[in-house]
Design a protein around this nucleic acid. Sequence first.
DNA 1: CCGCACATGTAAAGCGTTACATGATTGC
DNA 2: GCAATCATGTAACGCTTTACATGTGCGG
Lengths: 182, 182
Amino acid sequence: MAQRNTLQYIILGLLSQAPRTGYELTQDFAHEIGEFWQAQHSQIYPLLGKMEAQGLIAHTVEVTGTKLEKKRYRNTAEGQAVLTAWVGSPTPTMATTKDEFVLKLYFVQRADDTRLPGMIKEQLRIHREWLQHLEARRQLLFADPDAASQQFGHYLILDHALTRERQYVQWLEEQLARLPHN
Amino acid sequence: MAQRNTLQYIILGLLSQAPRTGYELTQDFAHEIGEFWQAQHSQIYPLLGKMEAQGLIAHTVEVTGTKLEKKRYRNTAEGQAVLTAWVGSPTPTMATTKDEFVLKLYFVQRADDTRLPGMIKEQLRIHREWLQHLEARRQLLFADPDAASQQFGHYLILDHALTRERQYVQWLEEQLARLPHN
DNA sequence: CCGCACATGTAAAGCGTTACATGATTGC
DNA sequence: GCAATCATGTAACGCTTTACATGTGCGG
């Protein structure tokens, strides 16, 4: 969706945890919070420049080896304030669910459509796999019960994603079982 | 999200149910399937022109009153074939959940953050309201048990949305109850 | 005759993905 | 030396939203 500057706030949020380079931010989007938002480096680098021009972040240069320059960004006081304001501000808009599978279902008119079992089984495979991935991440990050209180927000949204995926898998299983002659 | 032509397929799907004008399609996105996909008329009209140029749809002109011309579009055989192929094709990509509220949670580090109760209560209000809206729609559309078999796909995705919202509300209630000193 | 809904379009800007492009460092 | 990874950027394209723009029909 074309939301208002959401990526900018996410970057401020990540930088508030620890200063990062553009590359490290890209890695975070690929692995750490890829479950909740995606962004490529081609979007991140220009945005970092723009945010710096606006005074939200600032960078220092680190030299690795003899030549390689890394720009490590951190929030300015203003950036930190903008982040805090965003988190505390109302979120009146709901998530826009753009689930292509669900849309395809919409255009299946009859319960005995022969495509349905295959479609549902494919989604079951995908969502079960994802559920396993999320469970592995919870095991990895929050096996230690203290970790949950240290990064409460992270724990919360991982729990939310797990709940959602379990529900999705269960729903798919129920619908598959309910189909005629399956 | 920038998906591959999804809107085009949705239009083909809607037109396969009944021929429609651009205005009627816009209304459908606003009301009928707004839960699953959004599109404004400024995106729909140009796309209809493009799809007609590609031979997927064709229109006839209806005159209302003395002057007002309405273009009623319907699928060509080719358009219908493209729709069928899309519905039956694999859907390997998962829905990208871009839930701004969940992102904000991620950046709340501590369980005793004073912003949390308010944030969760706001979402509870929004999602309870939405749940009621969905329940009203099911009552309206599928009170008659025959209706579900007539429009099986529509019944399915409404059921899916209801399941998802009930789960979301329940999760929010649990987290709110679990917060310290609330 | 006035206001609202009906009806159709274009323009501009922002958001997001894919592809293009370059170079350095590290470990084997 | 070579490959994988680290590191940073730009370009082109497509999707989506917001705003601009115009005119008709209908009911009160």
